[in-house]
């Protein structure tokens, strides 16, 4: 279901109280004018799964953190912010996968110029 960025924290809190306590994955998709962040949450005892979609603009990409409700969101958020160049507000972020001296910012965006070194070979 599609929700807004300002409803995200309250919706996740209310879902956790009603039993959805297992976070499966946080990821994002880059459509060319906007990004969509995806949150997969599951209720293990009743065996139901829910997908939350949040639309954000590419030039104004930031999201609030949900680390206080689900501890497993820590590494997922770091990976998403590193791959898509999205700022996560409310926590201290750190890099996980890539080194800073490579000069890579957001490799999974569609406008990323890659493969240039191999084209020159």
């Amino acid at each position: 279901m599609k929700i807004d960025r300002k409803d995200l924290l309250s919706r996740i809190k209310s879902m956790k109280e009603s039993g959805y306590s297992y976070l499966v994955k946080i990821t994002a998709v880059d459509y060319k004018d906007h990004l969509t962040a995806l949150y997969f949450i599951r209720d293990i005892s009743k065996n139901k799964e829910e997908l939350l979609e949040v639309d954000i603009l590419s030039s104004d990409a930031w999201l609030p953190t949900i680390i206080k409700e689900h501890t497993s969101a820590d590494w997922y958020e770091r990976e998403m912010s590193e791959m898509f160049d999205i700022k996560i507000k409310g926590r201290k972020s750190g890099r996980l996968l890539l080194e800073k001296w490579d000069g890579l910012e957001g490799p999974l965006r569609k406008g990323f110029a890659w493969g240039e070194e191999y084209k020159q070979m």
Partner: peptide, 11 residues
């Protein structure tokens, strides 16, 4: 656990 800034990571 796990929350640290980028400067701390580099340090």
């Amino acid at each position: 656990e796990g929350e640290y800034t980028e400067e701390e990571f580099q340090i």
